[in-house]
Nucleic acid binder design. Structure first.
Lengths: 142, 142
DNA sequence: CTTGACCCTGAAGTGGACTCCAGGGTTTAG
DNA sequence: CTAAACCCTGGAGTCCACTTCAGGGTCAAG
């Protein structure tokens, strides 16, 4: 095989990894402590060294976070991608998350409709005494 | 006037107030520290004494919380009900809250639709390698 | 050789809204 | 008179996902 084929694995320090993933440098160290990132090998001077796989892992975490997964769930998802696990657990985690999202959305929509209703009945001027919003909070009729 | 007319204002201790409002007893003390409840007068033995107005105030807080107001907002709303303020500030707080709720709902709906989409493409069996959910997290094409 | 950018550690702080704890005093039922 | 149930205080702990801090070591440029 050619001498320079897969030999230089493109290493970089924590600062570059953090910048690439658009997170705080301390967040990377935090993820390591939390077990989301593998413990990085060190340079002679004690600096953490990362490679492309770590950058991809950070992207995985970032995307999972935008879907609202907790770090705990993300840790499990990452774990599942490593060993030869079955897809069922991944799907279960995702479905649980969808269900949680739906419940939370329903809660927020209830809040929104009730509050918008009260706000819609408030003229926005005059004394607070008698304001429909305050009245609703003082004594809900339901 | 008759001797027993408006004389006994129906006082009770913190435990009863907490039970009536369905909150932890420590929550009542916490609200006092936070300025949500007025500092209660004390009995001879040093017990806090509450009346009907405090119970109503606790209900106000409870209802505002179910609409998702922060304790800080609730403190301001309570303040506004006391002095001779104008309704405009109340309405502004409510409208801000509605806007925040709407933004949050949109965020959660985005998460839900993306995640449900991926989950819908996952068979739920077979190796994790190739699972559409994991694939999406590993490399989003958008 | 010095400056500045970068990296290291363990520990503590943040925010929001509580909740719990230890070590007491008070009140009431029996 | 005693035991149970209730109340008091200041302070610490909880959850989550970081962020900040103090006090250093390392590395590349000039």
């Amino acid at each position: 095989m050619p001498p320079s084929a897969v030999s230089q694995p493109e290493q970089f320090t924590i600062g570059r990894l953090a910048k690439a993933a658009e997170v705080n440098i301390d967040t990377v160290r935090f993820y390591e402590r939390q077990g989301l990132l593998q413990i990085a090998p060190r340079s002679a001077g004690g600096y953490r060294l990362y490679g492309a796989a770590d950058a991809q892992r950070m992207q995985f975490i970032r995307r999972a976070k935008t879907l609202g997964f907790s770090l705990e769930d993300i840790a499990e998802l990452l774990q599942l991608t490593e060993d030869g696990h079955d897809r069922s657990r991944v799907k279960a985690i995702a479905q649980k998350r969808v269900a949680d999202l739906e419940e939370r959305i329903r809660e927020l929509e209830k809040m929104r409709s009730v509050l918008a209703h009260h706000a819609g009945h408030c003229s926005g001027h005059g004394a607070v005494k008698g304001c429909p919003i305050i009245q609703a909070l003082l004594s809900e009729q339901g």
